[in-house]
Design a protein around this nucleic acid. Structure first.
Lengths: 243, 243
DNA sequence: CGCGGTCTTGATTACTCTCAATAACTGTGG
DNA sequence: CCACAGTTATTGAGAGTAATCAAGACCGCG
């Protein structure tokens, strides 16, 4: 419990997916200094790169505060947004096997991230079964999350269902992390959302207008507040575009 | 090498993603009887369930021969196809964390599968670092695969690009496993493909007709043979539906 | 206050879905 | 071996949704 003071200034650590691995001293009798695996904390400003595609990756990376956008270069040369990450989310888990980042990660606003040495973690896992299981669990969860995400894109047909689903997912995720849906606000552009969802930015804009008109949310510039989670969820489930 | 005779009748084992874990005797000096982790082999006929959603899962499952389809129940009560698996592919990796299957898996044709006890594997991993790393690598690969898959769905707009991309992916995957593109043939219905890709079955049918007319492939009933991999790949990259 | 970028809104075009009818295939039984 | 029924695949016509093209409004910023 000596460690806990290290994190006093970061209450978000209690929400972090990495917290069980970040403080392995809590696992069993064997005391392991967390300093060995917690490499460093970094502060980024809007537009700053957390990492770039192709860079070597020997760490897991968790977001302490702020938000990020990941993207890859698609075959036609343009960028393809692959996701948005918020407080407590992990970055770079998929790169553990290849030890090389396969996407860019950019801060959407002033953002603080933690890096955890994966090599150290692997060493510790060899000696502490609880850590090994936590690691496997972590990857399994990430896999489940990735497949859930895939699911939302598989059957989706209408644009409104896709956007409603996305906004609802974000609201839910942030709610799980202790924020109220009313407080949900993003920092990403219409283009980013459109790119991510496979929609034209004009379509995204129209949908925001329509959702706001229908009382589902308030939107102002790059921020929005969900005001009717229930109806947003209804839209998500509908296959067609009926509003 | 005493073990090898066990697999003599299954040459496909050399293509299997699980082979490194299935024969842990090869890892280091410690000899571990593979019988402890290889639970059993099962033969299924067309339409047979490999497993059902909600069932307990304590095993990894590899396809020795044949093919399967995974699906979940979507919010509106209908089924959503989440993927197709072929010789050497794994099933149920994402269920390792929760120890419960979160999808149905059905054989598309006469199919043989192997089950590997995950609990045993975990035990062995605690003692043999090489197995632990192989396990992590396996999950990381699965994660990478899942995210690659997600990528193909994210930006995709036109139906032809989606189908071309899918057919190309299947052809490539089977090619990696030792089959020639000319020999690629499937056992899934147009409805399954359409469900998976988010297209109406009529659209899938029309695209098959068009692709065949343009000399990209031959199709006969539920089987098809890719005859022009290059042009199929070109279609994949195109954002619009120009043919 | 003017500038560059993003966002909104409108009109047109094009793609894909839906509905509907016919054709082909699969498996079963005579 | 052939005929039959049920399922699956093909093909066509019409309707609806979202992309594209284009113009103007709003915002942050120097």
């Amino acid at each position: 419990m000596i460690e806990s003071s290290r994190y006093a200034a970061f209450p978000t650590c209690t929400l972090c997916d990495l917290r069980l691995l970040c403080r392995p001293a809590q696992h069993g009798a064997e005391v392991l200094p967390s300093a060995r695996i917690l490499r460093h904390r970094r502060t980024l400003r809007r537009g700053g790169y957390v990492f770039r595609m192709g860079e070597p990756c020997h760490s897991l990376c968790a977001i302490c505060s702020g938000s990020t956008r990941t993207s890859v270069l698609s075959a036609d040369g343009g960028a393809q947004v692959t996701g948005f990450q918020f407080c407590g989310d992990l970055l770079g888990v998929g790169a553990l096997g290849t030890h090389e980042h396969h996407c860019d990660a950019v801060a959407l606003e002033p953002t603080v991230v933690c890096e955890i040495s994966f090599l150290r973690l692997e060493e510790i896992a060899e000696r502490v079964p609880a850590v090994q299981r936590a690691l496997i669990r972590l990857m399994s969860d990430e896999l489940t999350h990735s497949q859930d995400l895939l699911l939302t894109f598989l059957g989706q047909k209408s644009a409104s269902a896709r956007l409603a689903n996305y906004l609802g997912t974000v609201a839910r995720r942030l709610e799980q992390r202790g924020l109220r849906p009313e407080e949900v606000c993003l920092s990403m552009s219409r283009s980013d959302i459109g790119n991510y969802l496979g929609l034209a930015k004009e379509t995204v804009s129209r949908l925001f207008t329509r959702f706001a008109h229908d009382g589902l949310l308030r939107s102002q510039a790059r921020r929005f507040w969900v005001t009717n989670t229930v109806r947003l969820a209804e839209l998500t489930d509908s296959q067609d575009a009926s509003v």
